[in-house]
């Protein structure tokens, strides 16, 4: 991942390049929030705060990567079904595993399969019924959520013991879920920046018609993107449910806004066609650290929410001004 602290100041050109990266703001903001929290605690608990930030940012980062690919496709492309896909995949996978350690891998396959199903359904609505993606993913999310409610029945199935240990554990500085999320982000970076598919996705976002005329398999690419987003949501649901001791019906709720927020705060253009992966991790860390900063200042839930909102708007105002100038 991107280590912004390792730049050498004597290479002014390198530094200037770095400052012009759209994702730098997210990391600066995250670092500021981290620093402000440390000021209050007097430097105590820096390690555990960092560890917690990596853990919780991991979940936002994985769904954020999926949402980023969707948003890259251009105006009107947003996946609003991420929370419902998460919940449905988690519910079905945990029910399938039934706390049985030998079924962990098949369980993961179930989560991925459910994600694929959700993505397929979304794209079928978009392509066959020509429903605008926002409404298509919105209405299918109603269906997925109902399906999850119906299959959940208020029973909380515990994850298999080894899986729970894996998702809550980690090496000294690196939680396992963060490792998974970093690998996923790396893969996404390769796809977006180094693979032809990534160029296709960006070109569709910049100009659909031009991409079409230049022979980009537009529908195939869009199909892949929507399925990938839902699969990543399914995997996140699987990890999150294992991490928190079982699936519940509103486990995905906060990830609707979160998945969009990390993409945009990370410096990707909401209008599509211009995205970056590093920013997603920076923004995901920021979104967690800002809440813990406000917590450590002893602020109540109300003030915390207000400040979070104001900070999001401010960051976006700064970030998107750069985006528009470019």
């Amino acid at each position: 991942m991107s280590h912004i602290t390792t730049t050498t100041p004597n290479r002014a050109a390198g530094l200037r390049d770095l400052v012009q990266k759209p994702w730098i703001w997210a990391y600066l903001a995250a670092a500021a929030a981290f620093g402000a929290t440390m000021v209050i605690s007097g430097g105590q608990g820096a390690g555990s705060l960092f560890y917690a930030a990596l853990t919780f940012a991991a979940f936002s980062a994985i769904v954020g990567v999926g949402q980023m690919f969707v948003i890259t496709l251009g105006p009107g492309n947003v996946d609003l079904s991420i929370p419902a896909s998460m919940t449905l995949a988690a519910t079905l996978a945990l029910k399938f595993m039934d706390s049985n350690p030998s079924l962990i891998l098949p369980g993961l396959m179930v989560a991925i399969g459910v994600g694929m199903g959700c993505g397929l359904f979304n794209f079928a609505l978009i392509l066959l019924l020509r429903i605008p993606p926002i409404i298509a993913t919105l209405s299918s999310s109603f269906l997925f959520q109902s399906l999850a409610i119906w299959s959940n029945r208020g029973i909380r199935v515990k994850p298999p013991e080894p899986l729970a240990e894996f998702t809550t554990g980690g090496a000294v500085f690196l939680p396992n879920v963060a490792l998974v999320a970093i690998l996923i982000a790396l893969a996404a970076w390769v796809v977006l920046e180094r693979a032809i598919v990534g160029r296709w996705i960006l070109s569709i976002g910049q100009n659909l018609r031009a991409a079409q005329l230049s022979g980009v398999p537009v529908n195939l690419v869009r199909f892949g993107v929507y399925v990938a987003s839902a699969v990543l949501a399914g995997v996140t649901g699987f990890l999150l449910a294992s991490f928190s001791g079982g699936a519940n019906l509103n486990m995905g709720t906060e990830y609707m806004l979160m998945s969009i927020a990390v993409v945009v705060i990370g410096g990707s253009s909401i209008a599509g066609g211009n995205s970056n992966v590093p920013g997603i991790w920076g923004a995901a860390l920021f979104m967690f650290l800002i809440v813990s900063m406000l917590n450590s200042y002893g602020l109540g839930a109300g003030v915390r929410l207000i400040l979070t909102g104001l900070i999001i708007v401010t960051v976006v105002a700064f970030a998107s001004k750069k985006g528009y100038a470019a």
Partner: peptide, 19 residues
Amino acid sequence: RGLPAIVVTLGTSFVWGGL
């Protein structure tokens, strides 16, 4: 400011919720 409404209202949704 030429801001994307979807994101600004996302931010203000936190503000209204907090209020």
